[in-house]
Design a protein around this nucleic acid. Sequence first.
RNA 1: GCCGGUGUGGCGGAAUUGGUAGACGCGCGUGAUUCAAAAUCACGUUUCCUCGGAAGUGCGGGUUCGAUUCCCGCCGCCGGUACCA
Length: 861
Amino acid sequence: MSDQRKPFPFADFEPKWQQYWDQNDTFHTANPGEDDFDASKPKYFILDMFPYPSGAGLHVGHPEGYTATDILGRYKRMNNHNVLHPMGWDAFGLPAEQYAIKTGQHPRITTEANIENFRRQLKSLGFGYDWNREVNTTDPNYVRWTQWIFLQLYNSYFNEETQKAAPVSELEAKGWTREQIDDVRLAFIHEAPVNWSPDLGTVLANEEIEEWKSKGHTVERRPLRQWMLRITKYADRLINELDDLDWPESIKLLQKNWIGKSTGAEVIFDLQGHDVTVFTTRPDTLFGATYMVLAPEHPLVAEITSEDQKNAVDAYIQGCASKSDLERGDLNKDKSGIFTGATATNPVNGEQIPVWIADYVMMGYGTGAIMAVPAHDSRDFEFATKFDLPVLQVVQPNDDSDWHGFTGNGKSVNSGFLDGMKTKDAKKAIIRWLVDNNKGTFKINFKLRDWLFSRQRYWGEPFPIIWEDGNHHSVPESELPVLQPEMDDFKPTGSPEGPLAKATDWINYTETARRETNTMPQWAGSCWYYMRYCDPNNTDRFISKEAEAYWSSASSNTEPNSVGMVDLYVGGTEHAVLHLLYARFWHKVLYDLGHVSTIEPFQKLVNQGLILGEDGAKMSKSLGNVVNPDDVVEEYGADSLRLYEMFMGPLEQVKPWQMKGVEGVSRFLARVWRLAFEQNQEGEWVLSSKLTDDKPTDKALLKVLHETIKKVSDDIEKMSFNTAISQMMVCTNAFTQAEKLPALLLRDLLKCLNPFAPHITEEIHQQVGDAFPSAQCSKSRILADRTWPSFNEAFLVEDEVEIVVQVNGKLRGKITVAKDAPKDEIESLAQQDTNVLQHTEGKTIRKIIVVPGRLVNIVAN
RNA sequence: GCCGGUGUGGCGGAAUUGGUAGACGCGCGUGAUUCAAAAUCACGUUUCCUCGGAAGUGCGGGUUCGAUUCCCGCCGCCGGUACCA
């Protein structure tokens, strides 16, 4: 006996079973074509967001999602599925590189050590991963295919007619020039202001700025030559194809808002001889445009500014530039701006309107210029009020609300030929007018920008690109992977070339050709890792056609209009827009090019809620409220940790950690243990004398067991793990109180509990099976390989049911009747109840409502 | 500001989608066991009171025989977002 103080000897059997699963490859899943592949079983592809192996190791948030998927994976296995449930490492990333810069140690070494630790921790929690399929984004054989996918993007363009990616070789065949082709590639070179962080020595994607700023780094705008990915071409599909996904609506909405589609029109104004195009979602309000605003960075500003306004305008622009570094709009609610001295002509009515400059108009969206309709736009209204500009009503609200600042739909007024039209019709009419008069056109705009894809880092995938005579071309596929050169100095150069530029031998590809020295962002590897799991060791393709076809096939219980490859994806909300949007984009490109057979990567998405510290605050080192899974395993065992994380509350919900709660589920597991074992005088665990080899006959026990089988099955499907556990507690309490417990009953409870607490259930199953072979707990087959129990409806029904009697909706009594008692019998019985009689005395019974099997409500007054 | 989520005992949370509010667990209380403690087991535990009831799911209305659940109007907390024309 090991530790007398532990309520059950988990420290003895947990490592034992982990070793068993490892050595027997219990959770290995065969691929089509392999000997042990069973094509008759449906597939179930279940995916965790793979971790970045940080030096800090696992935190309790990781096992939350991982336990949920493990339960589902084990459950599906027991329900005759080929379950693909793998794990891997998103191992490129800044911390390893920054550590390398500080110490000179190669990032690969740190990364390997961290992975080692993560793997140990995950194994100590007994997750049923197929470790043969482990992927590592930094592995040369993985990098190779990341670069290969990049080349698919590089060698493709977006065909507007088919709305699909297609090879640029099509364009070559049509006689397009190199320059023309380079302009349409999905991966392209672009010189534009980007977000450059001087202290990180790299550029960042728009999406990343906030994260790094919050960590105290500075970010500034700087024009640089960068690799971009043309994700904007997929904006419409990225919105529309969300429809068939089984994702939380809030996440779909988040993505839609991020993509930010707005429908409207472009209108051309004459600005002193220049055509200035503005974008508006409300072309119907064109008659109400009383001034125009240009962004401070607008290229026409210098030219159109009048002599007497020049100093003021310059000063204003200067002011904007200096504060652009700070949070330009963050808490700056006050509008600012300056008159240019110029006027523009409103094309629809010839009105001369003043042209202003203001930083509430941004160069990066639309055209960097707006027509201001202060009467029906809150920002324009605020601006016009402050600078005393005219406000002209052009929309009449349908109700009698105030038209000042009214932004809804109504009827056009003061708008010439639009007068009297509904907003919707007025939009159509004015667009027709604009088109007919060459003054504008229908237009859709997106907030989504093209994806800035290059970074100035060492620890990332190099681009498989060569520069020669100012042109770029790809390296031959046979040269993949292109790996970083070995270096000792990983410091950023501070220049946009990045640290790879210091590897002088490496960058010289030939006498005249140089390698691209930028590397890819960390998102690259995580964009397609789920595919690689399907065929992780393939050296000929990123995934074999057979593996792709099988793991993309319909699962037994997915929706008929299922469009995603992975059946279930579980992870945190922090990836709601970035990772999930990028991965969908890559997947669609690969679909267009015929490399994958589904249009979406992830059919169902579930976000697990954050686990807060015991104090209700977010776990953080500085608050000292971080819970280390290793400590919990040491103290209570892996099963207790797993079970507690699932028992805390609904998976999706944010919830605080309570060590007392871990103790509670640990006590529950101890009770399960004591169903099978009792301690003798020496303190050794021996088989419980309560266990029998009898055929189960006790109706009450059969009922609670079968209720449990039913509820646990349903709840696992619904991912309502906390209620499943609570039902197993009810069952265990009933079993504990029984005089005798047939081993057969215990076995089925163990099966239900196995996906949640795999170690203890296997251990009990094995030991009890040795003693009671008749309970079919044979030693040769472990629980994980057995089939999930099915419940028998016959055990659930009761002959008699308790019915609640209410008088005027208030509980007054309870009666017990036969389960199929007729309505009138229930009614009369209910009225005879003494307490009911007391409450109906002296009153007239108006109505009696009988809900069969539930209640009777007597309405009396 | 806008968008989304959420609000139930001392605490984490249940409630068959309109039908006994508080399952299960924590904590607490009482008892058994023990020389004693821990562990374990049994019972109790929404609140108030005159022990018969009364009130009660953020607040105020409504629909209904009946509302945590549906409708209208507020309030609080959490998350996302930030002048996107």
